[in-house]
Design a protein around this nucleic acid. Structure first.
Length: 285
DNA sequence: AAGGTAACCTGACTGC
DNA sequence: TGCAGTCAGGTTACCT
């Protein structure tokens, strides 16, 4: 589910409810996520305060400071994870299936639910070095909505990093080593808006076409955030509300339907065991 | 080093 | 109704 827009919608929803609050407990009902939730977290977090709620790529970064905890809680939503904010007390909802972890704050409950358990909750202590050197973050590309990807610099980055690469442009985007946050849905959508075929060899795409692609990435991700993300099956923001960017899709999951620009039937293809969708007339190699 | 594939896991849906 | 097969928003480990 969650690509950068969904993660950012979650981060924005969570931040005002937990920043500055005191952590009372971390309750782990099922710690068998992509990696085990570190058992020591339940011991060191109580009493600490949440300082910041940030994001790097699709990772949510919760900075914590306390007597025994100086570091960052790293939360990834995987394919099906959600983080929901609830008030503590009488209105607290009953436990649902796959409610694996609660971060219990002084007046708020932050509840992690993840049916497939592809997500992760990890810890990076300040004593382990800068967070950007964390093993999950160090190889990530630039943030698409940051100055490092703005204007011509984003296009030049894509152009420079792709020279000599035979990989398909769709795969290069999904890899996240050049620019982060573009997952399977937004890769298809941004390539459509840039007029680039998903199977085009990244190393043979001209700079002018990367100018269009970089612009499409910025526009689509920002618009998706505005719309509360995409809800295909189960994504909800921290307040439980679904996103509605899926209403804006041009190609994703629209095989055989008419292109919204030229009415040609949308096609699907398989790249690296993932589905790609494209318009054979609007998008060229 | 780059590129391809399998793996992790549950649930929804399709076809027989 | 049931059962087998396929697919789903991500990332990493392990091959060649």
């Amino acid at each position: 589910m969650p690509e950068l827009p969904e993660v950012e919608v979650t981060r924005r929803g969570v931040a005002p409810h937990i920043e500055g609050r005191r952590i009372d407990a971390l309750v782990v009902r099922n710690g068998a996520l992509r990696w085990p939730v570190p058992g020591m977290l339940a011991d060191i977090l109580p009493g600490a305060r949440v300082q910041t709620v940030g994001r790097r790529g699709k990772f949510i970064l919760i900075g914590c400071e306390g007597e025994h905890a100086h570091g960052t809680l790293i939360v990834h939503l995987g394919m099906t994870g959600t983080l929901r904010v609830h008030q503590r007390g009488a209105a607290e909802p009953a436990l649902a299936t796959h409610d694996h972890v609660d971060l219990v704050l002084d007046n708020t409950l932050l509840r992690y639910n993840d049916p497939r358990r592809f997500g992760a909750i990890l810890w990076h202590a300040h004593s382990d070095g800068p967070i950007e050197d964390n093993r999950h973050l160090r190889a990530l590309g630039v943030e698409p909505l940051s100055a490092a990807f703005a204007g011509e610099t984003g296009a030049q980055l894509l152009y420079r990093e792709s020279r000599g690469r035979a990989v398909a442009i769709k795969q290069l985007l999904l890899g996240g080593h050049v620019v982060v946050g573009v997952g399977n849905i937004y890769a298809s959508e941004t390539l459509f808006r840039a007029g680039i075929h998903p199977a085009a060899a990244a190393g043979r795409i001209a700079l002018a076409r990367y100018v269009r692609l970089a612009e499409a990435i910025r526009v689509v991700l920002a618009l998706a955030i505005d719309k509360g993300g995409s809800t295909l099956r189960d994504f909800v923001g921290s307040d439980g509300r679904a996103g509605y960017f899926q209403q804006e899709y041009f190609v994703y999951d629209r095989e055989h339907e008419a292109c919204r620009v030229c009415a040609t039937p949308i096609r699907a293809l398989r790249q690296g065991q993932r589905s790609s969708f494209y318009c054979p007339r609007c998008q060229r190699r």
